[in-house]
């Protein structure tokens, strides 16, 4: 039975989206992507190095037939910068997809929701498929969806912090209230149980980078994350039991020997 994640009409069979930054080597990145089972990876737009020609091209190391690229606007601190970056990304490989970040604060990397909304509106108008990174605010989520976002991606904790799901209740509320737009946890996941917990809430997917790239063994952690996402998804679909304060026997209470 298919349980695809559908974003803007495109099916993904993995609910894990991976960043491609912070890996020590391209080889480690490739193996980690492979082990994670992901089908969509984020990339950043940067100046091409003109003097150091020894640098290998990043795109030589990503199988574009296997992975759908999701360019990001990381490092952008205003709607204008983000729009400019998204437009350049579209030109690099003719893609309309963008993981939209408009950062509002350097220390926390929390999003600037006002700039985010402005950029979302402009880019949707330009025909982009926009996946905005925002904080877990239902009202902002609704506005982003009204502006045409293809998915909404709340953080679970600050980017790269590895703190795990710090906003369980807010994510639950988001899930209860947002039924028709993919909801993807973006940032904060530190280990496999965090990914599983996010998926148990019923979010549609998880996006992570540092949790894998920063692990002692990224390839193993990538596999753990794949399994965590899968376990959480299955548990969500299965429907967990209700919580009770007291014991409920699980062996038959009749037919006891006397």
């Amino acid at each position: 039975m298919s349980d695809a994640l559908v974003i803007a009409g495109r099916d993904f069979h993995s609910r894990l989206i991976l960043g491609t930054g912070k890996y020590e080597t391209y080889d480690l990145m490739k193996k980690s992507l492979e082990a994670s089972g992901t089908e969509m990876v984020t990339v950043a737009v940067r100046r091409v190095p003109l003097t150091d020609r020894s640098k290998e091209s990043f795109l030589d190391h990503v199988d574009l037939k296997k992975y759908h690229l999701l360019p990001n606007t990381a490092g952008c601190y205003s709607a204008d910068e983000a729009i400019r970056t998204a437009m350049l990304a579209r030109e690099v490989l003719d893609t309309k997809w963008v993981k939209l970040e408009v950062i509002g604060d350097e220390r926390t990397l929390f999003p600037d929701n006002e700039g985010l909304l402005e950029a979302t509106r402009a880019l949707v108008k330009e025909g982009f498929i926009v996946l905005p990174y925002f904080n877990d605010d239902l009202i902002v989520a609704r506005r982003l969806i009204d502006a045409g976002a293809a998915a909404v991606m709340p953080l679970a904790a600050p980017i790269g912090s590895g703190l795990g799901i710090q906003n369980f209740t807010n994510l639950r509320i988001l899930r209860e209230c947002i039924k028709d737009t993919p909801l993807i946890v973006d940032a904060g996941v530190g280990t496999a149980s965090d990914a599983a917990l996010a998926m148990e809430i019923g979010v549609d997917g998880v996006l992570m980078n540092t949790g894998i790239a920063g692990a002692r063994d990224p390839v193993k952690m990538a596999e753990a994350m794949r399994l965590g996402v899968k376990a959480g998804r299955l548990a969500f679909k299965a429907g967990r039991i209700g919580k009770k304060l007291y014991a409920a026997a699980s062996s038959p209470e009749t037919g006891m020997i006397e």
Partner: peptide
């Protein structure tokens, strides 16, 4: 002149 580089769920 820009291209793609590795990047993630991260601002810089």
């Amino acid at each position: 002149i820009v291209s793609f580089v590795g990047g993630g769920a991260a601002g810089s």
